[in-house]
Design a protein around this nucleic acid. Structure first.
Lengths: 142, 142
DNA sequence: ATCACTTGCATAGCTTGCTATTCAATATTA
DNA sequence: TAATATTGAATAGCAAGCTATGCAAGTGAT
């Protein structure tokens, strides 16, 4: 059997993801955040004061990955945690001023990176690309 | 400004890549290899007895990433290294019997995973998806 | 021939993902 | 109520990516 990397969906998609990540990374670095914090911040900008479990439900991550990233975010003064009066096992997670202040800049960075990545495609092709990607995800999702 | 993850190319592509990786991971685990070793094995199955530098030129990885993965591959008896008579700084990298023996199974696994991932698309759509992806990569590549 | 530059690779240290395990708090059931 | 099960979160340990740095071997220029 033969195998051609350059025509393998797996390789192509991996390459895509790494280029995307690198591009966004560079754009958000000046804000003092890193890419793994991005999805978490997005959720918290929508609604904070939630428990880790509630946050987890809105994210596509394993619990341990989230816990570790939250620890780094606390270290980096992006979040604080307070006691949850109704359950001593859990805590409530809050954004700091600093994290709230960068929201718009971060949105802009993500928009810019997406626009840049798709800049070689027409609007129709962009829509097609996203739609096809969604269908591939659907096929693979357990 | 607003930001909708589910319509963000970056998030979608990241999700895609993780599902792909997980799927291939599961298929190759029985062969005793892991996903980071896969691209390297593909190149070595084509041609081994090469230096790290030659290998690096054929891969889309940083030198340090390759060096570390090669160390794990040696630990896992997938490769051996011999002296390079023409340059004492470098070594030649050779596949072991074990690594050679799994080649066809690994190709098959990758084929199967790609087919599975794209199974929700028609042949035309599959070609479209790959072509669009390539163009997105081209736009982002430095 | 020596001194400086370049090159090939390794190492250190970080992030972000994972699985497996642990532990304390809470809930359930006999 | 006591024993057991479940749940929320943390921790350990690994892989694979990155940047930055170090080091020894080779190359070149004076």
């Amino acid at each position: 059997m033969t195998f051609e990397k350059s025509q393998s969906a797996g390789f192509i998609v991996n390459h895509l993801a790494r280029l995307f990540a690198k591009g966004l990374q560079d754009r958000i670095a000046p804000l003092g955040i890193v890419i793994g914090q991005f999805p978490i911040l997005l959720e918290l900008w929508e609604k904070d004061g939630v428990t880790q479990k509630e946050l987890l439900e809105r994210l596509d991550l394993e619990q341990a990955t989230l816990a570790n990233t939250l620890t780094r975010m606390e270290r980096d003064t992006l979040i604080r945690r307070t006691k949850n009066p109704s359950d001593a096992r859990s805590q409530k997670i809050w954004l700091t001023e600093r994290a709230m202040a960068i929201k718009e800049h971060a949105y802009q960075a993500a928009h810019d990176q997406n626009a840049f990545a798709l800049s070689g495609l027409s609007s129709e092709e962009q829509a097609q690309f996203l739609a096809l990607s969604e269908r591939v995800i659907k096929a693979m999702r357990p």
